[in-house]
Amino acid sequence: MLNPHREQEYRNGDNKWEAMILAQLDLTSTIQLNNGVAMPRFGLGVWQTDNTTAAASVTAAIRHGYRMIDTAKQYGNEAGVGRGLAAAFADGSVRRQDVFVTSKVMNGDHGYERTLAKFEGTMRRLQLDYLDLYLIHWPVDGLYVATWRALEKLYRDGRVRAIGVSNFDVQRLQVLMRSATVQPAVNQVEFNPVMQEHEMRDFAAAHNIVVEGWSPLGGGQALSNPVVGLIAQKHHKSAAQIILRYDVQSGVVTIPKTVHEQRMVENADIFDFALDEQDMQAIAGLDQNRHSLWYDAFGWYGTDTDYGMATQKWPDSAPDYDD
């Protein structure tokens, strides 16, 4: 387990010691959250995955050594993730405490009482007694402070091991933290070569908040970047492996999504090499501070923005969302 403060030193250039340690990371490596909980640095995301596929993907990922699964009610596949976890635990190869499971509060479920009530549905679908990490999926303006109070209660009651946020900018995170009695442990944001969140990462490092990155491959756009391609040739790795290694080596927890078992194996094959300082600087120079093309097309900050439920409410999960 690495100290996040030493990782900040690495990003600031004092990397001789850190580069040696980072080169020794593997799929079981963890980072310590601000409450002492160990969070894996690498996991599986399941956005845009139906329940049947999610179940198979989760079981396969765990079989191949993954120890973190990231889902959300808004994805419409918590039930499938729950089935995949149950299958993995049933064969005795892993225990519940070996797998770090994250879910998130859906936009339409914000508010203190409603968040607490809807959390029970998430747990039922996932077939779990506790969550490792529960996040506010999007900061619904006017409600996210009350929602955070509900997460604090769930944390104090032992229902979740850590709490955090997702898609919060620095300003909204500052508002939340002014009234919080439990500081966020994680902020999950988009992170890839063209969107590197420097302001948020600096703020998070200063407040001991771990940054977790979704869409690490930029929706596939980053895979064709010629700079990434040259570095891939240099290390005899794929473009995806170079980008994912950059994430981990930058101290960002990463959760690439795939439903293909071979791709899961390839994505995780990033722990037998290290990017040098020249590689790191070259990829850092690709930053455009630009979100994915679809990001700004939706009003993410309102309670009526149930994008996931509107577009990804798979037929086999529909009854699960009547709670």
Score class of each variant (00 low, 15 high):
residue 42 F to M: 03
residue 206 A to T: 08
residue 203 F to I: 04
residue 139 P to G: 13
residue 69 I to Q: 11
residue 110 H to K: 10
residue 128 L to P: 12
residue 67 R to Q: 10
residue 261 E to H: 10
residue 126 L to N: 12
residue 293 L to A: 14
residue 211 V to A: 02
residue 235 H to R: 13
residue 148 W to A: 02
residue 217 L to I: 14
residue 6 R to C: 08
residue 159 R to K: 15
residue 98 D to I: 03
residue 146 A to H: 13
residue 26 D to F: 03
residue 240 A to Y: 01
residue 61 A to W: 08
residue 15 N to L: 01
residue 320 D to R: 10
residue 71 T to D: 04
residue 108 G to C: 15
residue 217 L to D: 14
residue 149 R to E: 00
residue 113 E to H: 07
residue 174 Q to A: 06
residue 310 A to C: 00
residue 279 D to T: 10
residue 14 D to H: 14
residue 47 W to G: 00
residue 278 Q to H: 14
residue 316 D to T: 14
residue 169 D to L: 00
residue 166 S to P: 09
residue 231 I to L: 03
residue 306 D to M: 15
residue 290 R to K: 15
residue 295 Y to V: 02
residue 271 F to Q: 01
residue 192 N to G: 03
residue 106 M to A: 14
residue 172 R to Q: 15
residue 25 L to E: 01
residue 107 N to H: 02
residue 138 W to C: 09
residue 168 F to I: 05
residue 20 M to F: 13
residue 293 L to I: 11
residue 296 D to T: 13
residue 66 Y to Q: 03
residue 223 L to W: 07
residue 294 W to E: 13
residue 156 R to N: 14
residue 178 R to G: 09
residue 308 G to L: 10
residue 196 Q to V: 06
residue 108 G to W: 06
residue 279 D to V: 11
residue 309 M to F: 15
residue 146 A to C: 00
residue 28 T to K: 15
residue 66 Y to C: 02
residue 252 V to S: 06
residue 221 Q to R: 15
residue 62 I to H: 05
residue 248 V to R: 05
residue 89 F to V: 13
residue 187 N to P: 04
residue 270 I to M: 01
residue 277 E to H: 07
residue 193 P to T: 08
residue 177 M to H: 06
residue 176 L to D: 02
residue 101 V to E: 00
residue 162 A to H: 09
